[in-house]
Simulated scan of single mutants.
Amino acid sequence: MIEKLNQLDIHVFLWLNGRYTPWLDPIMIWITERNSWFPLYALLIGWLIYQYRKQAIGYILTIIFSVALADQIASSIFKPLVHRLRPCHELALQTFIHPVMECGGQYGFVSSHASTTFALAASLWFMLGKQHPWLRLGFLWAAIVSYSRIYVAAHYPLDVLAGTGVGVLSAAICVLILRTIQARSGRGRFV
């Protein structure tokens, strides 16, 4: 069963990675680079502070803890435990893949990019989605960043899907902790 799932994952990866076009390569490299998104993070922090003043501290810390938790679960637990090679490190796939940048670390399960971007998107949605329905666009952003990891041959689809789950779960845990702290301090639930 696991072998069939692995073969299906490789097959889907090869199909997705094979849908490249040269003009899209630099765009996907930009999307997949973590530093590309620092202006977005700065805007997000500024918006939270402007919109929520003192409450912003709790929201920002919840996002930071959520992203950090997702990253640690992906990088410090799953990758060393599972030891699944990234597709760009898999010798049998080298002639079939389209890598567009350096491969990165040896192991890829689960995707840290997927876990951290979905942790950020889910944290915002869980905390503020009722007041700001446009925050659902964060999930589209996280999906595009996650897809870029398949495009650049750094991850299989299941690496990304598992990373998505880790990110959403991390966000749910951290938001639950924030709600518990707010309830105990008498501040009530989110506005």
Rank of each mutant, 00 (worst) to 15 (best):
G167Y: 01
I144Y: 06
G165V: 06
A154Y: 04
M101H: 11
L124N: 00
E33N: 12
T32V: 14
L176M: 10
Q55T: 13
P157G: 03
F109T: 03
Y151D: 00
F13P: 00
G165S: 08
L124P: 00
N35D: 12
I49E: 06
G165D: 08
L85R: 11
P157H: 01
R84V: 10
Y156K: 09
F13T: 02
Y147V: 09
L69M: 13
S146I: 04
L85I: 13
D25N: 14
V166Y: 01
L93H: 07
I31P: 00
A153N: 08
L69H: 04
E102M: 07
I144V: 15
A142W: 00
T116V: 05
A171L: 04
D71P: 03
M28N: 03
R86H: 13
V110P: 00
F139R: 02
G138T: 05
R187S: 12
R84K: 15
I64Y: 12
A74T: 09
D9P: 02
Y156H: 11
G18K: 07
V145A: 11
L40H: 10
G58E: 05
S75A: 14
L5V: 13
G165H: 06
H132G: 02
G105R: 11
Y52T: 03
V82G: 04
Q182E: 11
I49W: 11
V67I: 08
Q131V: 03
R53H: 15
I177L: 15
L81T: 15
Y147I: 07
L69T: 07
G104P: 06
Q7H: 12
I173W: 07
Y50T: 13
M101Q: 14
Y41L: 10
I173N: 02
L24S: 08
L161Y: 08
R19L: 13
A121C: 12
Y107H: 14
S123D: 03
I77G: 11
Q94I: 14
Y20A: 04
G105L: 12
Y59E: 05
L137G: 12
I144M: 12
M1D: 08
L91A: 15
P157T: 01
H98Y: 10
M127C: 09
A142S: 08
A171T: 02
S36A: 14
